[in-house]
Nucleic acid binder design. Structure first.
Lengths: 244, 244
DNA sequence: CGTCAATGGTCGGAGTTCATACCAATTTCT
DNA sequence: AGAAATTGGTATGAACTCCGACCATTGACG
């Protein structure tokens, strides 16, 4: 069994890029999607024509972006039926050609993202808990939570954590909310990547995840929101301390 | 005394527009800013060079957008020192040249905006109440609340209401949140504009505004959020009913 | 084995936007 | 009255993107 992309997350992670320099935006989007583990190593990206449509960009521009990823060693491309671009690595190293500054953010933007997160993620948890979840929904949620618990290695743990939060956002049913959470998780990932010596309290985090997921499946909206708020506060306190 | 623009709101209302068709985005941004009352009738828009920078667009493109507004009768332009584009009307009529479809949204997008609003606006109120507001901040808030109360006429009332909500968002101190609220208020305004026969319970709304503002200045974060949630729920219920 | 389908690869013209410099009008200051 | 500053108006060439069509390669299926 080869690795499978997490298609239920791509809708919000790959959002339209519009820009006179759409090329750079595409590179950032795709690199982020790979970084967050939406397309794990070994998986195939969607066909160029489909990706171009999702990113609201011409195929020519998308191809340039893929070429950059290929040059950076993130993907390999094969032709013909069944071909495509395969994710081969998630090297956190800077992309070549001056693309390092992409998605850079100032310190104040990082702090703002933490504030914003404390609103949207608890809100998403609240909304998700207010719905009557279907069986598959519940399965996806518990599977994501278990994946975080089982992940070994810092990078894998980080990705599984991102996916859990994105899954909760998707259960909210709001595309706008899911988009907001995706954006927040992306910058959060940048922050955690820029501070490699971070060692959060994994056990505590796992307990919070467990509580959040249980509250969501049990329909305890207020409780889900409160625990998520605490969860965000804990992460934020840790990061704020390291940012000075 | 001539009308003054609400400069403390423009930072979030006029957000960068990037796109090959940036022209249309500029028209929408400016029209929205005028529609929401950031630039009331009689006020002068910022100089072209400044507006172009804020919208992250070249002056040539911005000028085309202003030309469209001028052709639509929204602004008049004078040259020379002290010149500029003056807002002359807020006609809700469609902009000419096929620009009517700009900022159109499907019904599901509208419903999503209502869900999103129920998260971000209460979140903004909560965050604003958590801060120690300065004197001028409190004044702006109470003035905005009074303006809603005193507004006569449907259109004026709608604008004052938008400005109150945007002011609360700005007091949250989070640029991302303010941007989210701006986006939500913009689509909300579109919805209310598309349903002209709407007659909300003004008195009830005023009471809620009063309670929200009081909770914010008194620092009762949870209460501010709760009342704002109720406020959003009431509006949403009304709109959902009219959307079928 | 041959045809079809799916996919990446290539090309050229058209349309937008950008950046910059310069011109024109009008007010303000000296 | 004249100089300076501010603001809109104009022009040109480069860079980027888009769109569409077509080619090349590979695998699947009859």
């Amino acid at each position: 069994m080869t690795a499978q992309p997490h298609e239920h997350l791509t809708a919000a992670v790959l959002r339209p890029v519009r820009g006179h320099h759409a090329f750079e935006g595409c590179v950032e989007q795709l690199a982020t999607a790979i970084r967050l583990g939406v397309y794990p190593v070994g998986t195939l990206l969607p066909p160029e024509r489909e990706l171009a449509e999702r990113l609201a960009v011409s195929r020519a521009t998308l191809r340039e972006a893929i070429a950059a990823l290929r040059q950076a060693g993130l993907v390999e491309t094969r032709r013909g039926r069944g071909g495509g671009s395969t994710v081969t690595s998630q090297a956190r190293g800077r992309l070549p050609g001056g693309l390092t500054k992409i998605s850079s953010a100032t310190k104040s933007e990082w702090l703002d993202a933490l504030e914003f997160r404390r609103v949207v993620e608890p809100g998403a948890a609240h909304m998700a808990a207010s719905h009557d979840l279907t069986g598959p929904d519940r399965e996806r949620l518990t599977a994501s939570e278990a994946a975080v618990h089982d992940a070994t290695g810092k990078r894998a743990h980080r990705q599984a954590d991102s996916r859990l939060h994105l899954t909760i956002a998707s259960l909210s049913g709001s595309a706008l909310l899911q988009q907001a959470v995706t954006s927040v998780q992306s910058t959060l990932d940048s922050m955690l990547g820029a501070i490699p010596s971070l060692e959060p309290n994994i056990g505590h985090s796992h307990r919070q995840h467990r509580q959040i997921c249980r509250a969501i499946v049990d329909g305890h909206a207020d409780r889900a929101r409160k625990v998520m708020e605490d969860h965000c506060d804990d992460t934020a306190a840790l990061l704020r301390g390291l940012l000075g």
